[in-house]
Design a protein around this nucleic acid. Sequence first.
DNA 1: ACTTGTGAAGTCATTCACAGCG
DNA 2: CGCTGTGAATGACTTCACAAGT
Lengths: 207, 207
Amino acid sequence: MALRTGRVARATIARLPKYLAYLEGLDEHTATVSSQHLADGAAVKDAIVRRDMSDLGVTGTRGVGYDVSSLIDRFHQELGRGEARTVVIIGAGNLGHALANYHGFENAGFAIVGCYDADPEKLGRVYNGIPVKGVEELAGDVAIHQVAMAIVTVPGPAAQQVVDHLVELGIRSILSFAPATLSHPEDVDVRHVDLSTELQVLAYFSR
Amino acid sequence: MALRTGRVARATIARLPKYLAYLEGLDEHTATVSSQHLADGAAVKDAIVRRDMSDLGVTGTRGVGYDVSSLIDRFHQELGRGEARTVVIIGAGNLGHALANYHGFENAGFAIVGCYDADPEKLGRVYNGIPVKGVEELAGDVAIHQVAMAIVTVPGPAAQQVVDHLVELGIRSILSFAPATLSHPEDVDVRHVDLSTELQVLAYFSR
DNA sequence: ACTTGTGAAGTCATTCACAGCG
DNA sequence: CGCTGTGAATGACTTCACAAGT
């Protein structure tokens, strides 16, 4: 259906890292995978795999499957691996610290420029090679490193002004862990991960 | 439409904490809210609020709005606040530490029983009043405290066996931060928060 | 007048099921 | 025969729009 859409569905993109993890863990000499096979590896249904490939414009061989290395290349390209992508973390508390030490971001091709905090006492620390700096350095660093994304880990009450500041600096994509309802211009994409809500939803459905 | 369904849509439940946060921050003497008003406070559309209330079986007064304290009571009840709900955290690394220190879980009515790690060096530490224990104490603690939920923050490769173990202990709800595809019985509810995937999706749509 | 409550339509994503190619 | 590729069905959630209650 979508033979050359510039944009692919969010749900499809979210599965690409899973597909990639499975494909990259495969034997060197595994040349092809069937949708069934890939589906098992990524814990999804086979029909989803075929739909995703179709939406991405990827084509396999009937009776055989999809070419593994083509898939890997295509997924890398689609996810923008290889391009320089810089990120800042705002808030050097426990969560900021944990995220700075989390290697999944680097593995996915992101470079964390710095971790910014208002507390002068934290200044100068280094987490996993990432410097903790004062917020006054943020504007400069964003410009120098062409930062396009930010991860917000400040306490709830401070989150709104942090978001406002980030938007002012030209950041258009924000991943927030702050337990707060945030307002923002609609051309800014704010993804919200609310840990306590996740747990509450889980609890609700376990009764 | 749903006047007495035992179960409400996931999406609706996920909004209740937002509604609650807004309502609980209201003036003492604000007796009612309109769907419009509540929608603004929770950053959603007013039609969603009305649909949610309808699905919950909550009824307002036309021309006036919904009764604030009734809503608060109803939401608390729906989310199971007030009931004893115990949780364990598996993995006392950076993320486990951060989550132990995160007060949002307690605020939502969860009691974190302990933080379990295979590394003997971490044993005996206390994070925010939560003891770090060896995994061999997990089974006993789960039984004693009637733990029904677990948060998994171990590295990817260890995650599958941790999940298997938790399932064996009777845990039926798991919130996993491990960057790994996990298999589990279908009567066990596993919510997966993949931080690096979140960032990759965000990056994709910012191009 | 103001605001609820809800059919009906719209959007997005998953799943089915099978025709058609290799 | 095996496996892809996709129309069509289904399902979950949102949004519209308006009739009806206060």
